[in-house]
Amino acid sequence: MTARRHLLGLEGLPRTELEQLLSRAHEYREGRVGGRHLSGRVVANVFYEPSTRTRSSFEVAAAGLGAHVLNWTVTGSSASKGETLVDTAKNIAALGVSVIIVRHQHSGAAALVARSVGCSVINAGDGQHEHPSQGLLDAYTLWRRWGGVLENKRVAIVGDILHSRVARSNLHALKALGVKLVFCGPPTLLPSHLSQLGVDVTTELDVALNGADAVMMLRIQKERASEALFPSAAEYHQRWGLTTARAAALKPEAVVLHPGPVNRGLELSPEVADGQRSLILEQVENGIAVRKAVLEAVS
C-alpha cells in the first residue's frame, strides 16, 4: 500500500491507487485482515459542522484499528472565540495526534489544515468541494456489487450538484474507474462549466435514468426552497425525486444509492429507500471498511 500522508480529495488520484484502496477496503469488509495498525495512536475527529454518520463511521473504523479517538468539538468553543482555523489545527496537532479528520463548512479547509500541521489529514467534507471517503465508499459499494468491474457502467447522480461535495468526489472517483456519468438536477442546482469535466449533464430526470446501472440520489436541504432555488419540496419530488414509478422503470438490476440522511418523500419515495434496489444501508456498512483502508493508508 502506498503511503499517503493526506486524503484531501479524489481529484487526480490515479486509478491504481483508487483500486488499491478499494481492494484493501474489500479485505477489511470480508474480514480477511484484522490487526490493530493504529494501536497506541491518537486520531482526532475535528468537526466544524454537525455530522453523526461520518463522525461515527470514522470513530468505529479508528477504534477497530486500535486507535484512541479524540472528538474535538468545535462548534461553540474555539471557533466562536475567534481562533483561526490554522491556530486550532496547530493546537490539535500539538496534542500528538497522528491523524486529523476534519469536516468544515468551507471549501479548501482540509487543505489549509494539511498545510498547517505535520500530521496526516483526512478530509471528511469541506464546503462544496469534496468528501473523499464518501466518494470511495460509494465507489466501493458499486465495485462490490458489480464484482470489481465499473468500466462502462452508467451512473446517474441526481439532485443538488451545485452544493454537493459528494457529487464532486463521486465524479472524480467514478470517472477514473471508467464509469460513464450523467449529472441531473434543477437548472438552479447545476454548477457552471460542469460538462467541461467530461460528464453528461441534463435537467430531465428520465433522460438521466434511461439506461442507468446505478442512481445516486443526493440529499436536498429543504432550506434551498427558501433561497428560490426551486419552488417547493413537492415540486422537487415530482420532477427530480426517485418515485416508485420511476424506480420501477429502471433496468431490472439497477441499484439506488444515497449518502444519507435521506429525506424520505423528497429525494426518494420511502418504498424506494427501503426497496430491493436500495444499497443505502450497505453504503453505511461499507463506510467502515473504506475508512479503515483510508486511515491505514495515511498513517
Binding site: G108, G127, Q128, R168, S192, H193, Q196, L197
Partner: peptide, 11 residues
C-alpha cells in the same frame, strides 16, 4: 464563474 471554482467548490 469558471471551471476552477466549480471544481474547488467555491461559490
Amino acid at each position: 464563474e469558471g471551471l476552477t471554482p466549480t471544481r474547488l467548490g467555491l461559490p
